[in-house]
Simulated assay, not measured.
Amino acid sequence: MNKLSKILLISQLAIFSTMNFCQAESLWDKTTKAVSDTASKVVDTVSDATSSDTTSKEKARHTINNNAQKALSRLFRESKEAKELYNKAAGYAVFDSREVAFLIKTGFGSGVAVNRSNHSRTYMKMASGGINIGGGIKSMQMIFIFPTHKAFNAFVNDGWTAESDASAVAGDDSSSVGITLKNGTKIYQLVDTGLMLKASLSGTKYWRDTDLN
């Protein structure tokens, strides 16, 4: 290889090395920026998620409260007795649920229990299950009217399961609509077609919603 060829080769290698260094530096800058951008987006996403979670809970409570008020208004239109009991009650609870009934009946929903003395609200959940003949899907509202603070507080603090309470089975069914438990609590059930003559309580459980309280 002559001297001129060696000089040209060395020059090309120098140019190639410089280009690679510049490209590597550019790639590093891009990588650093990408990492920085990603970190910022993660922070923003966490912040948005926290904000979104708070907003979604507020919306959930707002929806439950609206549904409860609508259910009460509807109940009072259909039952003068219910309005009279409500006016004297220590508290009430309203649950909005959807029941899926095929061979096995399942139901799930949410609601709110309200202390009429101090207007405090406790958000709760419900679920039910049992054997069913037939099929279909229906929405319903269950309304509890508690005559005493003892009955109300027991429901809110301990939850309630129909099968665990003998009074749910042995309640007074002499009135025209709903079920009256031994502690005086009155239960009404509203469905798409109107106020049910007798509320269906079999396999139903109610408990405090830890997410919304």
Rank of each mutant, 00 (worst) to 15 (best):
L72F: 10
V177F: 05
G194C: 02
S73G: 15
T180I: 05
N87Q: 14
K150R: 09
W28I: 07
A166Q: 09
T122S: 12
M140K: 13
A34E: 11
T161R: 09
L190V: 00
I131K: 10
S40N: 15
D209P: 09
F152Y: 15
Y206D: 01
G130R: 05
S176W: 06
K186I: 00
F152V: 09
A151R: 00
A101Q: 14
M140Q: 14
V191I: 12
I137E: 11
T55Q: 07
D158T: 10
D173V: 03
S79H: 00
D172T: 04
D211N: 14
R208Y: 04
V112H: 05
S176T: 14
A199R: 00
K105R: 12
A113N: 03
N67Q: 15
V43H: 14
N118H: 04
A49K: 13
K41I: 10
D192I: 03
Q141D: 15
S97Y: 00
S139N: 10
M140V: 04
N2Y: 07
A154M: 02
N87Y: 05
T193E: 11
G130T: 08
R61S: 13
T106M: 04
I64K: 14
T55A: 10
N115R: 06
M196R: 01
S56V: 06
F146I: 05
M124V: 05
F21V: 13
E163A: 15
L212P: 08
V46H: 11
G130K: 04
Y206G: 00
G134F: 02
A60Y: 04
M196T: 02
A24L: 12
Q69V: 07
R98C: 07
T38R: 07
N2G: 15
N213L: 05
N65L: 10
G109S: 04
R116S: 03
G136D: 09
Y92T: 07
Q23I: 15
N183I: 04
K125W: 00
L212T: 04
F16Y: 13
A199C: 02
I133F: 15
S175M: 12
S17E: 12
E58V: 10
T31C: 02
L197R: 03
G136K: 08
Y92C: 11
R61K: 15
A14Y: 01
N20L: 15
D29A: 13
H149S: 14
A101C: 06
M19S: 13
F144N: 02
K186H: 07
L72C: 08
I145F: 00
A151M: 01
H62M: 12
V177Y: 04
N87K: 11
I7T: 08
S175H: 09
W28H: 12
D37G: 05
T161M: 07
L27T: 09
L9D: 08
I145M: 02
D29P: 00
S202G: 11
S202I: 05
G111A: 06
G107N: 08
V191G: 10
M19Q: 13
Y206S: 01
K6T: 09
V169T: 13
S51H: 07
S40Y: 09
H149C: 04
V156L: 01
Q12H: 08
T204E: 03
D173G: 05
S73R: 04
A101S: 13
S176P: 05
S5A: 12
T122K: 01
K59M: 11
C22E: 05
A168L: 02
F144C: 01
N118V: 01
T185I: 03
